[in-house]
Simulated assay, not measured.
Amino acid sequence: MLRSYLRLMLFTLGLLVGVQVPGFIDDYAKRVEAHRLEAEQGLKGFRETAQRFFQGDLDALVAHYRASDDPVMRSDADSVSHLVARDRLLQQEWQALQGPWYQCAWHVLAMANPGLRQETFGAYSYQLLLRPEAIAWGLASGLLLAWVVESCLLLLGAAAGIGRSKKVLQRHRL
């Protein structure tokens, strides 16, 4: 009886953890989108200048600023270069999150920008989403956690000889 309750508790814990996955991925995607739009807004004037004088090439604009005799322009080259690099990073992150759910999940888990992931984690508030993908993640996580923990405990018990009935032991002695 206690084993059934423990199994149920493990399943519930896995379910509650599993339903957080789609919410976290969604929050990460929204954070990337917000930063991406902000980066685009910050580059808007520089894009217009690059379009007018360098056929839209921001790298050529930065190179022009760096080559200038004016120390203010050279200093601005570093600022613009940083904005361009940030915009490219956010565009890549955004593109990676446009694929199927499993690709997005893998990206957030293994390949996401560490700073953005940490920022998302710091601001994340736990939620219970009732969307189909959240329910699927929850059920899969609950079953997996309950199965893995119970299997490990049964293997440890079998190795230690715990849990064998007297009939089984007598049968093996014969």
Rank of each mutant, 00 (worst) to 15 (best):
L2R: 03
L2T: 12
R3A: 04
R3G: 05
R3T: 04
R3F: 03
R7E: 13
R7S: 11
L13R: 01
L13C: 08
G14R: 02
L15F: 03
G18S: 06
G18C: 03
Q20F: 03
F24I: 09
F24N: 01
I25V: 14
I25Y: 02
Y28Q: 11
A29K: 14
A29Y: 05
K30W: 12
K30Q: 14
E33F: 11
H35C: 07
R36H: 15
L37D: 15
E38N: 15
A39I: 13
E40C: 12
E40I: 14
Q41E: 14
Q41H: 13
Q41I: 11
G42E: 15
L43K: 15
G45D: 11
G45T: 11
F46P: 09
F46H: 14
E48Y: 07
T49I: 13
A50Y: 00
A50D: 00
A50I: 00
Q51A: 10
R52K: 02
Q55W: 03
Q55A: 05
D59Y: 06
R66T: 12
S68P: 01
S68Y: 09
D69A: 10
D70C: 06
R74Y: 06
V80R: 04
V80W: 03
H82M: 15
A85D: 15
D87T: 09
D87F: 02
L90N: 13
L90W: 02
L90G: 10
W94Y: 14
W94Q: 12
Q98S: 14
Q98H: 07
Y102Q: 14
L109P: 02
L109A: 09
A110E: 06
A112M: 05
P114M: 10
P114K: 07
G115T: 10
G115N: 09
L116P: 03
R117E: 01
E119L: 12
F121M: 12
A123L: 11
S125Q: 10
L130A: 11
A134D: 04
A134S: 13
I135D: 02
I135T: 04
L139H: 07
S141R: 04
G142K: 01
G142S: 09
G142Q: 01
L143E: 01
L143W: 11
A146H: 02
W147R: 07
E150A: 07
E150T: 09
L153P: 01
G157A: 06
G157S: 05
A158H: 05
A160M: 05
A160Q: 06
I162P: 00
G163H: 08
G163F: 04
R164V: 13
R164F: 09
K166I: 08
K166R: 15
K167V: 10
R171G: 05
H172M: 10
R173Q: 13
